[in-house]
Amino acid sequence: MLSLNLYGAPFYLVSAFLFLFAVFQTLVRNRSVVDVNRAIELFAVFFAIAVVSYDVSNRPFDMEGDTAVYINFFNDLNSGLENPFQTFEPGFIGIVRLFGYLSLDYQSFFYLITFVFLWSYYFLIKAVFGAQSRWSLFIFAAVLFYPFFLSLTANVIRQGFAMCFINLSIYCSVRGYWNRGAIYTLLAALFHKSSIVYFPVILFRRVVFKVGVSGLVVLWLSVSLASYLKLFVLLVAVLFDLSSSYGLAVNYSDLDGVDYITGFRWDFWVFSSVAIVLLVVLKWLGGELNKREAYIFYVCALLSCLHIAMFDVAYNDRFGVYSWIYYPLELAYVIRAISNNFANGQRRFYAQERSIPIKQGEKF
C-alpha cells in the first residue's frame, strides 16, 4: 500500500501563493483595490481547486483507503458487470452511470467530487465570514492541508459528494434560506444515506436554539458517560434491526465482518469534544448566540454528540467527519471573535483614558 500522498509540487506552489496573497490582503487595506483583490482571490481559489482536484483524481489505484474499491465499482457498473455492492444510494448510482454514458473515466469522476466539494466549502466560508473578509483565504488554504479533507478525498467518495450538498445546505441556513437548506440535505441523502442526520437539525432549528449552549453541554456529558458505560450497544442493535425491517441496508452493522475497532475511543471522543469546547468559548465571548452565523456551531455540537453515541458502530468515523470537517472554519471564527474582543477592549481603554480629567498638579 502506498502512503497517503495526494499532492505534487504544483499544489504546494499554489498553496504558498494563497497564503502570501492572504497576507497581502491583510496588510493592504486600501478600499480602492477591493474589487481587484476579490477578482485575484477568485482566480487564486479557482486555480488552487483545479490543481488539487487534478492531483486527487490521479491518485494511485492501490492508495490506502477505499480508492480501489470505488474504481472497481465505477468500471464494473459501466461495463455491465456484477459488483459485490448490493445497495447504493440512487444519486450516486445515477451520476456514475451518467459518467459512463458520457464516456468519462473514474478520474473525471474523482475530479468532479473534489472540485465541487472545495467550491461549496469556499462559498460557506464567505457566507460565515462575509464577502470582504480577509480570513477567507487563510481558512481555505488551511482546509487543503486538513487531514479530514484528505479523508473525504481519499477514502469516502460517496460521502464526499454528499458533503457538497451539506455545505450548500449550511450556506443557505446562514443566509436564512431554511427551506432551500432542507432540500439540499435531502439531496445529500441520495448520495450517502447517513447525510440525513442533518435534516432534523434544520427541521427543528428553533428547538435547537432554545436548548442553548448549556443544554448542549449537558447532552454532551450525558452522551459521553453513556457511551463510556456502553449503554448504547443495545440501542444501536435495535436501530439497525428497525432499519432492516424497512428495507434499509446498513453497511456498518456487521461488527464481526469488518476490521475496525469499535467501542469507546478516547481519541475520537477528544476530536468530537472540540466542537463543544468551541461552542462554549464562542458563548463566553459573545453572550447569547442568536446569529445565523453561529448555526454551524450548533450543528457540529449535535453531530459530535451523535458520533460519540455511535462508537459501537463499525466505521463510526464516517459520522465524526460530518463535524470534524468544519473545525478550521469554527476555530477561525473563534479566533476572530477573540481578536475583535481584544481590539474593542483596547479602544474602550484608550477612550476612558482620554475622558479622565487630570487634576491640577497631578503628574503621570
Rank of each mutant, 00 (worst) to 15 (best):
F110A: 09
Y111F: 15
L112E: 05
I113M: 09
I113C: 04
T114R: 03
F115D: 01
V116Y: 06
V116K: 05
F117L: 15
F117M: 14
F117Y: 15
L118C: 13
L118R: 02
W119D: 02
Y121Q: 14
Y121S: 10
Y121W: 14
Y121A: 10
Y122D: 10
L124T: 01
L124R: 08
I125T: 12
I125R: 08
I125C: 13
K126C: 14
K126A: 12
K126N: 10
A127R: 13
A127T: 07
A127I: 03
V128N: 05
V128G: 09
V128M: 10
V128W: 10
F129D: 07
F129V: 12
G130F: 11
G130V: 09
G130D: 08
G130K: 09
A131I: 12
Q132K: 14
S133F: 09
R134T: 13
R134L: 09
W135Q: 11
S136K: 14
L137G: 04
L137R: 11
L137W: 05
L137K: 04
F138N: 00
I139H: 00
I139S: 00
F140P: 01
F140C: 04
F140K: 07
A142I: 11
A142D: 03
A142P: 00
A142F: 12
L144Q: 12
L144Y: 01
Y146N: 11
Y146T: 08
P147K: 08
F148Y: 15
F148A: 01
F148R: 07
F148I: 10
